[in-house]
Amino acid sequence: METSSSIVTRNLCRTFEVRRKSEGFLASLKGIFWPRSNFVRAVSGLDMEIQTGELVGFLGPNGAGKTTTLKMLSGLIFPTSGSISVLGFQPFQRDYEYLGRISLVMGQKQNLWWDLPPIETLAIHREIYNISQAEFRARLDELVEMLEIVDCLDIQARKLSLGQRMRCELAVALLHRPQILFLDEPTIGLDILMQKRVRAFLLNYHERFRPTILLTSHYMEDVIALVQRVIVINRGLKIYDGTLNELSKAARLEKILTVTFQSIPEGFSPLAFGKLIFQEGPRFQVKIPREKAAETASNLYSTGKVLDLTLEEAPIEEVLGELFAS
């Protein structure tokens, strides 16, 4: 396996046994003595290679196998078959040296002690990761400044807002300067402003310390703002691995054309070009086939009545939607 790759998986599979239960009391009673279950393949033959210092988006719809993969990479669960190497370690062996070099942040689960101020949780993590007092002080000051949490450290975690808690969670997760950071929906539930702050922090942190980051998110703003490369999985299978731009080009069959006329040309029908998205007076927005975009724009300009014309890529959400559907 290549030395410059921090994360390598080969033919990675994970199958879960899922208990089934029919509706009603009798079915429940029967289930006690004759339980029914079937096997669900959450991850199926995943090959993936992530270079040291890369920030990669790991995308897919709900139930695609993203979180299961992150759990295998962080050593939480065993793979059913296949191989994983992260920093040269096999994660499921849970070697202390390995665990000391990674961090897992899950947007819906928390590291902070609920009844205590975050500074107490940070103090515990200082001991767990064997960080000297001086180093702890320096790192904490740095994180507090970057995350703007100076006012949150001495307030009980349960009294903090979701945004403040998430930023404190990040401080706890990054205190030991992990080389690998697994981020599972770090902005989930946050308001738009707070999502932006978390994104800005992650970009800044990555630029400064260059950890390898694998990020899952359902917010496309996270993906667009943070990553260049994306790996897309669906039903446990990898369906795309490449740059975000290439994904747009490869999957987008249509472009968005917005045109505003001085006066609508006689006989103009937007349906002749593509699918109408909206019309407001002399302003039209249509979806047109990518290969006809240039020709259509040229034809419209030739009418001499165009005030403004833009051609845009379709939103990434739609691109992914098309990918998953196919």
């Binding site: 759990k71 050593g75 939480l76 665990l99 590291n111 767990i128």
Partner: peptide, 13 residues
């Protein structure tokens, strides 16, 4: 029940 055990299991301890 909360799934927070996940985070405990990723600690070097």
């Amino acid at each position: 029940n909360s799934g927070a055990l996940d985070l405990v299991l990723t600690k070097p301890i």
